[in-house]
Design a protein around this nucleic acid. Structure first.
Length: 353
DNA sequence: GAATCGTGGCC
DNA sequence: TGGCCAAGATT
């Protein structure tokens, strides 16, 4: 009845994905590499992570290197990957590990580190240190809900799913290969037991899958309905000087896009801004050139921005209130995706203004 | 438990 | 086109 771990491990031997952070069979895993990849992979696709992972390892080959880096450098390297609290916690965690001298090797101690929760602690413990625990991510929740035909909707069913997932780990085979078993679950979820159109015909666990037997596998896991995503509106001003530097400021450490750079502008409100009201938030008096609009979808709201730009004549870049920021090169700025969209609008065709 | 927190790709 | 989804953590 309970799926056989040996069947999954055998499948994994021939179907495992090759990924930059994975050590080859027989190689000793690098806890720093495992940790870095796990943080980046939180709510983020493998495809998006790979380039960032390589960049971080190049700039910071060890956790000591990362710990010694200025936070602005870390945020710059992270810019575009999203969920920026991860980058701030990553840096804080690196500093803590550097103090400790090494990564903790138990779930209990890993949980004490910033940015490491129930999933990541178990992933690191299993993959880097061979602890016989099952990290329960979205893949494992999906696989488990189908194997046991659990129809209770997420997120309320999360605890039950974790308990059932732990059952998969009971056999001696699984206990002896925690790293492979955990990653086999990920790969099964990513390539066979996918959210839509799962490939049940080639699944090593199909014979014991209750969801498949009942014909409801592809409909699991059930999820509670999500609430509507409101729209907010804002206006940003991109002010260039004759050296192609741009007026930018850094957002507060906490909250949305915390610690990241932005172009000065209005608050993001529920109602559209009139041009007259928006101009009260401009760093200089007009005239401004309207460059266009940007739509950007965040997790819990859609943002619609109007973007104005202007190039300041030589010698006029002094006397701007510091609350609007300072003139800096954008090449090393920690610009989140939404601000990169604004910048692209401003610098396109700028000579035509 | 419910909110908050990014971004890109897919159908 | 818009909703859904991706190796979740924090408050």
């Amino acid at each position: 009845m309970t799926p056989d771990a040996s069947d999954l491990l055998r499948w994994y031997d021939t179907h495992r994905r090759t990924l930059p952070w994975r050590s080859l069979p027989g190689q000793r895993p690098n806890p720093y590499a495992v940790w870095l990849s796990e943080i980046m992979l939180q709510q983020t696709t493998v495809k998006a992570v790979i380039a960032y992972y390589e960049r971080f390892l190049t700039h910071y080959p060890t956790v000591q290197d990362l710990a010694a880096a200025p936070q602005e450098d870390v945020l710059y390297l992270w810019a575009g990957l999203g969920y920026y609290a991860r980058a701030r916690n990553l840096h804080a965690c690196a500093k803590r590990v550097a103090e400790l001298g090494q990564f903790p090797d138990t779930v209990e101690d890993l949980l004490k580190l910033p940015g490491i929760g129930a999933y990541t602690a178990r992933a690191i413990a299993a993959i880097a240190f061979g602890r016989p625990v099952v990290p329960v991510d979205g893949n494992v929740e999906r696989v488990t809900s189908r194997l046991f035909a659990i129809e209770n909707p997420l997120p309320a069913s999360r605890l039950l799913l974790a308990k059932q997932a732990a059952l998969l780990n009971q056999s001696a085979e699984a206990q002896d290969h925690p790293s492979d078993f955990a990653q086999a679950l990920f790969d099964l979820g990513a390539t066979i037991c996918t959210p839509r159109n799962p490939s049940c015909l080639t699944c090593p666990w199909r014979p014991s899958c209750l969801g498949h037997a009942r014909g409801i596998a592809s409909t699991l896991p059930r999820k509670a309905p999500k609430q509507a995503r409101p729209t907010r509106y804002g206006v940003h001003f991109i002010l260039l000087d004759t050296s192609e530097r741009v007026l930018m400021r850094t957002r507060p450490e906490k909250g949305l896009l915390g610690g990241m750079d932005e172009f000065p502008g209005t608050e993001w409100h529920e109602a559209p801004w009139t041009e007259a009201d928006a101009m009260h938030h401009a760093p200089t008096l007009g005239p401004w050139s309207l460059r266009g609009d940007v739509t950007h979808v965040f997790t819990h709201f859609t943002l619609k921005l109007m973007v104005y730009a202007k190039t300041l004549p030589a010698g006029h870049n002094a006397g701007i209130d510091p609350s609007f920021g300072a003139f800096r090169s954008t090449t090393r700025a920690a610009l989140p995706g939404v601000m990169k969209k604004c910048l692209a609008l401003a610098v396109t065709d700028m000579e035509k203004k």
